[in-house]
Amino acid sequence: MTVLARTVEVTRRYGSTLALDSVSLDIRPGELVGLLGPNGAGKSTLINLFVGLRRPTSGTVEVLGGSPADPLVRRGIGVTPQESGLPEVLRVGELVDFVSAHFPDRADRSELLARFDLGDLVKRQIGGLSGGQKRRLAVALAFAGNPRLVFLDEPTTGLDVEARRALWDGIRAFHAEGGTVLLTSHYLEEIEALAQRVVVVGQGRVLADDTVQAIRDMVGVRRVSLVAAELPELPGVIAHHREDGRVHLVTADPDRLVVELVRSGAAFSGLEIRPTSLEEAFLAITAKEASHV
């Protein structure tokens, strides 16, 4: 099987709202795909289609060679619940057992909990766990049935740096053993750290689909930063913000921007031009898209 999951020209409407507009996407075995997009771009809808929670208005969704509406197909996937909804009165071990009972191939409970640093919490009631512990438990549940394909919707939102890194290690270990992951995240740093392939969605469409490096290069935007009290209107600025007295400008044409800056006669110092981060590339892609509409 060359494709583990895919959508073929999938369109999804909610009433008059178009959430996905003819999206075709292939996820191949062993990939770790990062799904990026602003809120309301269609990320959650896409994941909901893949895990069988929603049906497409038109087009087809295929997972592991079948329909995600089929429970037998869903034996091969792992999904993360929102940690805010975990059943509070159950103990950690009981919940893992309950979820595992749905799968023919079950991960060893103590091994699974140890992998997400929950080993000594087996007997604790879930209501008494910290937010970070609940989050790790929620992610661990996605791996309870030894899935081939895992969907992680913002797995580390609200975690501190240390807990986030522990989770990343767990996800990397799964990927290293050949597992396939589709991941969404608020943190671009997370996508950069984990994913090899990035899919950018905006306004219900796939805007870009390539390696992290290629996405960065493709948009070719640069970050121009400088110290200045006040700046005139400058051409080609895609995004800008101020931080610690420095102004950061993201642009596709840094040469022209600098020329205009000098020409305007505005006082500035400490000029730097650097390649962009994924975040800036992402802003550039979605901004470009918005200006088309």
Binding site: L72, V79, G85, H102
Partner: peptide
């Protein structure tokens, strides 16, 4: 509860 949609993703 948001737990409910999760249960629907389990193979049953």
């Amino acid at each position: 509860q948001p737990w409910n949609p999760y249960l629907r993703t389990l193979p049953a």
